[in-house]
Amino acid sequence: MDHVKKFLDQLELDKNITVEDIPNIDLYMDQVIQLFESTYSGTKRNEDDKILTKTMINNYAKGKLFFQIKNKKYSKEHILLISLIFHLKGTISIGDIKRVLEEMNEKIVNEKFDLPQFYGSFLTIVSENMNQFQRDFQELVTSAENEVQAFDEKDKDYLEKVLMISSLSYMSNLYRRAAEKLVDEIQGEE
């Protein structure tokens, strides 16, 4: 059990940019990148990996994933949208992200939509997801340990990991497919 907790702690699942982390002043691109790097640096798989780059932000802007910036500065709403994009891009395509955020961008610009409140709701659900993931992961470890009991002792650790990787990948695909189906529903409603 302790090795599972240590493993989960290393994932730094609780790292997220909160509304309170964002200053009440508009930020330049380098400051936005620094905020993301400082928050998510522990989640990098390799030290050379980049969390967010100027090219990424420029591509998001060109792709109209968020509303237009003013004077080369990013508002709190821009940063919250970039954070949502950051979380979405690992699962769904940039085109799908654009479809998902299109109406929200319009609401922010035209209706004074309360994005910080929405983002707070997102973080509440993310926290619940994290807790559920930790419980599910522990169950997966137990299941994998049970499944490899019949195998040679020297192979058990490796086989447990292969089973877990396969299961996690399968579950990831299920969640991705469900997310894509919801994107298609949003697109169908437009």
Rank of each mutant, 00 (worst) to 15 (best):
I22R: 02
N59M: 05
V32W: 00
I97C: 00
N24S: 11
I82H: 04
T91C: 12
N59K: 09
N58F: 10
G95Y: 12
D96H: 14
F86M: 04
S41W: 08
G90I: 06
S38H: 14
I82A: 02
I25K: 14
H78C: 03
M29I: 15
I97K: 02
L80K: 05
Q68K: 15
K73C: 01
N59F: 07
T55S: 08
I69A: 12
T91S: 12
S38I: 15
I57H: 04
F67I: 08
K70W: 02
Y74N: 04
Q34F: 11
Y60F: 13
K50I: 11
N59I: 13
T91P: 03
K70F: 08
Q34V: 15
S38V: 15
Y74T: 09
Q68D: 14
F36I: 13
K54N: 09
T43Y: 00
D49K: 08
K50L: 01
H78Y: 09
L84V: 14
L52F: 05
N71F: 03
L84I: 14
K72L: 00
Y74F: 13
K64N: 14
I85M: 04
L84E: 06
M56N: 13
V32R: 02
Q31D: 08
F86I: 10
M56I: 14
G63K: 11
L81P: 03
T53S: 06
S93G: 10
K76P: 02
I79T: 07
H87Y: 14
L88M: 14
G42S: 10
L80G: 06
I94C: 03
F66M: 07
D48Y: 11
D26Q: 12
P23A: 09
N24I: 08
F66D: 00
K73G: 03
D30Q: 11
D26C: 10
F86T: 12
Q68P: 10
D49C: 04
I22A: 02
T55C: 01
I85C: 01
K72G: 05
T39K: 06
K50A: 08
K70E: 14
V32Y: 01
G63I: 09
M29N: 06
G42P: 08
K70C: 06
R45W: 09
F86K: 10
S93Y: 07
L35V: 14
D49M: 06
K50Q: 09
K62A: 13
Q34R: 14
G90P: 08
L27R: 06
Y40K: 05
M29G: 05
L27I: 11
I51F: 00
G42M: 04
R45F: 15
I92P: 05
I94Q: 06
K89G: 04
F86V: 07
K70N: 13
E77P: 06
I94R: 01
G90D: 10
N46R: 12
Y60K: 07
S83W: 04
I85D: 00
L81T: 12
N71P: 07
S83K: 07
F67A: 09
K73E: 03
L80M: 10
G90L: 01
N58W: 05
K73F: 01
I57K: 02
K50V: 11
G42N: 11
L52I: 12
G63C: 04
Q31F: 02
I51L: 00
I79S: 01
I33H: 02
A61E: 13
E77T: 12
F67P: 03
I97V: 13
S93C: 09
T43K: 13
H87W: 10
I85S: 03
L35W: 03
I22Y: 01
Y40E: 02
T43I: 12
E37W: 03
